[in-house]
Design a binder for these strands. Structure first.
Length: 306
DNA sequence: TAAATTTGACCATT
DNA sequence: AATGGTCAAATTTA
């Protein structure tokens, strides 16, 4: 069984457990607590499916694999590349073409792979008032001027892409200057070890209201709710993402697709805390080996039983 | 000196 | 042809 397959099964097991909990919740009277938990559960469940898809679609191939778009029409997490502001502006500048066209060695050109433009791949978007250290080790691999944008977009991939095949990437772009506003879109999920910090939302406690304590916790999700101190030896090696300093965040919102908003909008004030569990901190991290043991003995029949 | 960043070219999509 | 995502050589940093 390949590692990705194993992890995919882990995700399915997790999804199964979460769904069972959701079922139990729905059979209860609708208390306040139950309402919050059900929302968190839905997000977690959606995340397990997204993770599973991510794992399976990356299991045998590289990141450039063409995956049919319909795999990714995940209304819950999708922040598709469809521009929210579709403008046909004429004041355009082309930063790439033009001035100095140097033709590289043909050997170099042959090595180039296919650069598929992102479609609706599973993604999570966060709007923050400052650059957020999300605790992962990122490596910048590109920067682009974006049409009708005042600031360039930076592209990051997981530092462990090469050594561990982690496919997580993110894009960071400053949206506004005053007050500063940044958009960070996460693609894929971390499958690497050496996670640097459990949660980027722990940067500023004020952003996590008391509702965070209501989130369901699992044995293998301990890193979600436990706050590690700065004595984590990995912290010092968090890569800086730009020339601008990290500051405590003062605002985090969730931006999903329209359908996502439809589902979640009644409780937007809680999404920041809910999202932390769904976005990055999943059991995919191999340091959660509790489920690995489960997977070893799991049968597919078990997965289908609720 | 290894790892990270910068930057222009390359390439697929629109 | 314009645009956005990625590559990789050159450069910088730790």
């Amino acid at each position: 069984m390949s590692w990705n397959t194993k992890k995919a099964i882990e995700e399915l097991v997790r999804g199964k457990e979460l769904t069972k909990q959701l079922r139990d919740l729905l059979t209860k009277s609708l208390t306040d607590d139950g309402f919050v938990d059900s929302e968190g559960l839905v997000l977690k469940i959606c995340d397990t499916f997204a993770n599973t898809l991510s794992l399976l679609t990356n299991s045998n191939t590289t990141a450039a694999t063409a995956v049919p778009d319909y795999y990714y029409n995940d209304d819950l997490n999708d922040v598709s590349q469809k521009p929210t502001i579709n403008i046909t502006s004429d004041g355009r500048k082309s930063e790439d073409s033009g001035d100095s066209i140097k033709s590289p060695p043909s050997a170099l050109r042959d090595r180039r792979g296919s650069y598929k433009r992102r479609k609706c791949v599973d993604s999570r978007k966060k709007i923050t008032s400052a650059l957020v250290d999300d605790g992962y080790a990122w490596r910048k691999y590109g920067q682009k001027q974006i049409l009708n944008a005042n600031h360039p977009r930076s592209y990051f991939r997981c530092t462990h892409k090469t050594d561990q095949g982690c496919q997580a990437t993110k894009q960071v772009q400053k949206l506004e200057d005053d007050p500063p506003k940044y958009a960070t879109i996460y693609y894929g999920h971390h499958t690497c070890k050496n996670k640097l910090k459990p949660c980027h939302f722990m940067v500023d406690d004020s952003t996590c209201n008391n509702d965070s304590s209501i989130l369901l916790s699992f044995a293998n999700d301990s890193t979600l709710t436990s706050k590690q101190g700065n004595d984590n030896p990995f912290l010092s090696s968090v890569k800086q993402e730009s020339k601008e300093d990290y500051k405590p965040i003062s605002e985090i919102t969730y931006n999903g697709s329209s359908s996502s908003d439809y589902l979640l909008s009644p409780h937007h004030h809680q999404l920041s805390t809910l999202d932390l569990s769904s976005a990055d901190m999943t059991v995919l991290s191999p340091d959660h080996d509790v489920l690995s043991d489960v997977v070893d003995s799991v049968h597919l029949d078990d997965l289908l039983q609720f």
